[in-house]
């Protein structure tokens, strides 16, 4: 069976199974276990309604539990064992990691990414949102800035490899340097420390569109009266933007910021494609892939360090969601 055909069959089987599960389980609940007739009809309806949500939720909870909740525990447990997975070594993997210079560089770079990328993408996004806000061709401009969102990290990395190429006739950066009289082409991806920023810019390029779309919607939701009043009081455009508009969309700015932060902690594709982690550009997700398939103990330990970095923002996120529920 060709894979594509297998895929089609899977879709058919999967969807049919889902529909059958939901329909049958509801039918069994209403007709067999708690039938809505006979002497206990009223009580049965109530009982059925107590059970029903869990019928609706069961497949999702099962999948979430198996594919996301279990791995958190599973990874942690695995990270306490050695490479073969048989010998318990406690925090040995973590100690080894913190003693290795490669890990410390990856951790430092990751913290740089966390500081720079969300901030820069949000700032660019806010700038683009405000500038395109009342432009006649604003929607076209937005669409163009938003476009990198559709491109894979691998594709984006290739696109920027062209820009960064160590060659006057391929790399735009070197071409510009050539115009200003540079003699030799340089490889910006090999400049120690600063090469990280060139790689980060790829991520910023992708995420700016996301930030722009959301912030632009937020800007439109600002009550007109506040802006009118500020203008009446003589506020200039900059004052208007920083003292009136930005404070009112602060909540959205924070949401955008945290969303990009989570993404930064997941993305290994860019570093992997652009430099493969060479020249001191590893970040934790790409560093982890060094151990994947080779040393599960180390790999899970790195993954758990990433989890620890996410944890504070995750807790904050959950609290925020609970507050909205109330």
């Amino acid at each position: 069976m060709t894979p594509l055909l297998q895929g089609m069959v899977t879709i058919l089987v999967g969807v049919t199974a889902c529909v059958a599960y939901f329909w049958l389980s509801n039918w069994v609940l209403d007709r067999v276990i708690f039938p809505a007739r006979g002497p206990n009809a009223g009580r049965n309806i109530n009982r059925a309604n107590l059970v029903r949500p869990w019928l609706f939720l069961f497949p999702a909870i099962f999948v979430l539990g198996l594919y996301l909740a279990y791995p958190v525990v599973g990874s942690f447990v695995r990270s306490l064992f050695d490479r073969s997975g048989t010998e318990f070594i406690g925090l040995g993997n973590y100690i080894d990691l913190f003693n290795s210079s490669g890990f410390r560089v990856a951790l430092r770079n990751n913290i740089l990414w966390l500081l720079v990328v969300p901030a820069a993408a949000t700032a660019f996004g806010l700038l683009a949102a405000q500038l395109t806000d009342r432009l006649s061709w604003g929607n076209i401009a937005k669409s163009m800035i938003f476009m990198p969102m559709a491109i894979s990290f691998v594709g984006a990395s290739l696109i920027w490899r062209f820009v960064y190429a160590n060659n006057f006739d391929i790399g735009l950066i070197n071409a510009v340097r050539g115009v200003f009289g540079a003699e030799r082409a340089i490889d910006v991806l090999q400049i120690p420390f600063w090469n990280n920023f060139f790689i980060m810019f790829i991520m910023i390029w992708i995420q700016t569109g996301f930030a722009m779309v959301i912030l632009s919607a937020a800007l439109r939701n600002i009550p007109e009266e506040t802006i009118e009043a500020a203008i009446m009081d003589g506020a200039g455009p900059f004052r208007l933007f920083f003292s009136v508009k930005v404070p009112q969309i602060m909540g959205t700015i924070v949401v955008v910021w945290t969303t990009i932060t989570f993404l930064v902690l997941k993305v290994f594709d860019i570093v992997y494609t652009v430099t493969g982690g060479n020249f001191g550009t590893h970040i934790l997700p790409s560093y982890m892939m060094n151990f994947m398939f080779r040393d599960d103990g180390r790999a899970t330990a790195v993954a758990f360090v990433i989890m620890l970095l996410v944890l504070p923002v995750m807790v904050w996120n959950i609290r925020q969601a609970r507050r909205e529920l109330r």
């Binding site: 599973g74 990874s75 902690l265 790999a299 899970t300 993954a303 758990f304 989890m307 959950i318």
Partner: peptide, 15 residues
């Protein structure tokens, strides 16, 4: 909401 941000990396080895 919490699971929304669990890093994918954690899931690789156990799964």
């Amino acid at each position: 909401v919490g699971l929304l941000v669990v890093p994918l990396q954690l899931a690789l080895v156990p799964l």
